[in-house]
């Protein structure tokens, strides 16, 4: 087997292992919650018979490891169980909300990733200039504020004062794509501001790191233009750390939007998660947790694979 394939398979195996560990942690975490779930759901007044019947229905009478494997195998087959709050299948509850979350995250990513890489390259090109400092100050101040603060500032100015954009990002299926995009402008802007700094700083730092190497000196001594030296000679070699940071930020976009979704009342998975926690709807929380974890692991796995593929030493061995 080629070393590249071996490496990729190893990464994928590690990703799968991580997911299994996470599923155990989520399951055990829920198990460890104090009190009896059935009792908590049915309330103080429930008779012991109803509690017992409810426990049987939820299969709580079975030993934990049996329930864990039953839950996991159902989950893998796409059956997430039923919500405790309204008895509806969780898959139906989560499905469209997750799609909404991905829509918001993907839009933010489509703006933030190219923007931050472009800014990073420019900052590296004109490093220590006024332009570089301004970009650094602006992006760093934005990362220093909590996202809800940025969200409310944007609402206060752009929505309340100027009335440019809606403050509530309530989208639905009947809307056209453009309407949807218009509705999510503010949450999207908030997310972009939060993640740009990190990716931009990493791009700048790794390019500057590469600029000190002798192949960059060689490129300069060939009389190439500065932009070409940075974009074609430095950037490809700086890719690997940039890809990793981009992946972490993408994962953050999917997983960490909870607060932004709540602020803008956006019908996404984060909103559902917050609601379910307050309703003690444990199966929904479990399912949402595992979906978030899977997204995180898959994105990081992708980053690893892309980083490996961006390295010619690994892509085309001797």
């Amino acid at each position: 087997m080629s070393p590249l394939k071996e490496l990729l398979l190893k990464r994928i195996a590690f990703g799968a292992l991580t997911l299994i560990v996470i599923s155990v942690l989520i399951f055990v975490g829920v198990e460890l919650l104090p009190g009896d779930l059935a009792q908590a759901v049915l309330g103080q007044s429930a008779t012991p018979e109803t509690v017992a019947a409810f426990r049987k229905e939820l299969k709580l009478d079975l030993p934990p490891h049996v329930r864990y494997f039953a839950w996991l195998s159902d989950f893998v087959q796409g059956d997430f169980g039923n919500s405790l709050a309204n008895g509806r299948p969780i898959a139906g509850l989560i499905g469209w909300r997750f799609a909404n979350t991905i829509f918001l995250a993907a839009t933010a990513a489509a703006i933030a990733v190219p923007l931050s890489i472009l800014l990073g390259i420019l900052a590296a090109l004109y490093r220590n200039s006024l332009f570089d400092r301004i970009i650094s100050i602006v992006t760093l101040s934005m990362i220093s504020f909590p996202e809800f603060f940025i969200a409310y500032i944007l609402i206060a100015f752009l929505s309340v004062k100027l009335g440019l954009f809606p403050s509530m990002a309530s989208i639905n299926d009947r809307m056209s794509l453009w309407d949807k995009l218009y509705m999510i402008i503010l949450p999207c802007a908030t997310l972009t501001m939060v993640v740009t700094a990190h990716m931009m700083r990493q791009t700048r730092a790794s390019i500057i790191n590469i600029l000190g190497t002798s192949f960059i000196e060689m490129a300069r001594l060939k009389g190439l233009k500065r932009l070409r030296v940075v974009v074609l000679h430095a950037f490809p070699n700086a890719l690997s750390p940039v890809i990793n940071v981009v992946a972490i930020n993408l994962a953050y976009l999917v997983v960490g939007v909870v607060i932004v979704e709540v602020v803008f009342v956006y019908p996404g998975l984060g909103q559902l998660l917050v609601d379910s926690v307050s309703k003690r709807d444990i199966p929904v929380v479990q399912a949402a947790g595992l979906i978030f974890a899977t997204t995180y692991v898959i994105l990081n796995l992708l980053a690893d694979i892309l980083a490996i593929l961006s390295n010619p030493r690994l892509r085309s061995p001797k």
């Binding site: 190497t213 002798s214 192949f215 000196e217 060689m218 490129a219 001594l221 060939k222 074609l232 000679h233 490809p236 070699n237 010619p312 030493r313």
Partner: peptide
């Protein structure tokens, strides 16, 4: 005027 560096391994860009 062209330049030939000491270490070709370092002076060639590994990505191209």
């Amino acid at each position: 005027i062209a330049y030939v560096a000491q270490s070709a391994a370092a002076a060639f860009n590994p990505a191209h």
